[in-house]
Simulated scan of single mutants.
Amino acid sequence: MNFSAFHEYLNGPAPVLFFRLDGQGRVLSMNNYACQICGDLTAGTPFQDILIDFQEVFDFQKIAHSRAKEILLSLQTVSGHPKSYLFVFKRLGNLVLAFGRPDIQELEMLRTEMVALNQELGNLTRDLHKKNAELQHALDHVKTLQGVIPICMHCHKIRNEKQVWDKLEEYLIEKADVDLSHSICPECMEKLYPEDGDDEC
């Protein structure tokens, strides 16, 4: 891979972090992906300033002179959520090149969490549709009486919207979706059947 292709790869869509550091571990430049993740750092920013939990123990000189092996580092990100990357540091003259790739385990954990969230969202959506259907079913069966109802002051028949006088019971059964059972109140019992009241005494 020539330098032009390498530069294009580093600034392409691949999730590869690239930092060009000086001999003291200060950031000289970075690729587009690193800018998206860490923000546009000021030239000269110490690399360890973007690390989480490693500021005190990060020994840049030791890492820069060691054999190339991956080191798991957590970075501060512009989103405010830390992300873990596996880094390799390669010395090139007076410069140190730092390459970071996403931590596969963290990506797998995020993928698992995403699948679980999608399943939960699907369950909630199904529950919501079910509750909406139940609510619609209930609304379809609700009948209410509203407004002024014309009623005869003598026989208590009610005039319906067709201008027909219905018995109170028929009107309630049709409009209020109720069942009525007939009985007799004590006052009417005494008034209409006084002899039954005398028998009880």
Rank of each mutant, 00 (worst) to 15 (best):
M1Y: 08
M1C: 13
F6G: 03
H7R: 14
Y9E: 00
N11V: 05
G12D: 07
P13Q: 08
A14R: 05
L17E: 07
L17H: 04
L17I: 15
L21P: 01
D22W: 12
G23D: 15
Q24V: 09
R26E: 04
V27F: 05
L28D: 08
L28Y: 14
S29I: 02
A34E: 02
I37Y: 05
I37N: 00
C38R: 00
C38Q: 13
G39R: 06
L41R: 03
A43W: 00
T45I: 07
T45L: 06
P46W: 07
P46N: 04
F47D: 00
F47S: 01
D49W: 09
D49F: 06
Q55C: 04
Q55E: 15
D59F: 06
D59T: 10
F60Q: 01
I63R: 09
I63G: 02
A64V: 09
H65R: 14
H65L: 14
R67P: 02
E70R: 15
I71F: 02
S74R: 07
S74H: 01
L75K: 01
S79A: 12
G80Q: 05
H81A: 10
Y85H: 08
L86C: 12
F87C: 08
V88C: 10
V88W: 02
F89Y: 13
K90P: 01
K90I: 14
K90H: 08
R91T: 13
L92M: 14
G93F: 06
N94V: 03
L95F: 14
L97G: 02
F99I: 13
G100R: 01
R101Q: 11
D103T: 05
I104Q: 04
Q105N: 05
E106A: 13
E108A: 03
M109D: 09
E113Q: 13
E113K: 12
L117F: 08
Q119C: 05
L121K: 09
G122C: 06
G122K: 11
N123S: 02
L124F: 06
L124E: 02
T125L: 04
T125C: 04
R126I: 12
L128C: 04
N132Q: 15
E134R: 01
E134Y: 03
E134G: 00
H137C: 10
D140N: 15
H141N: 12
V142C: 11
K143A: 12
Q146A: 13
Q146D: 05
G147R: 13
V148C: 07
V148Q: 03
P150E: 09
P150H: 11
I151F: 10
I151E: 12
C152H: 04
C152F: 00
H154M: 02
N160R: 03
N160P: 00
E161G: 14
V164Q: 15
E169C: 10
Y171Q: 11
Y171L: 04
L172N: 02
I173C: 15
I173G: 06
E174R: 15
K175C: 11
A176H: 06
D177V: 07
V178L: 14
V178Y: 07
H182T: 01
S183M: 08
P186Q: 04
E187T: 08
M189C: 14
M189P: 01
M189R: 09
E190A: 13
E195I: 06
D196E: 01
D196M: 07
D198S: 05
C201E: 10
C201S: 11
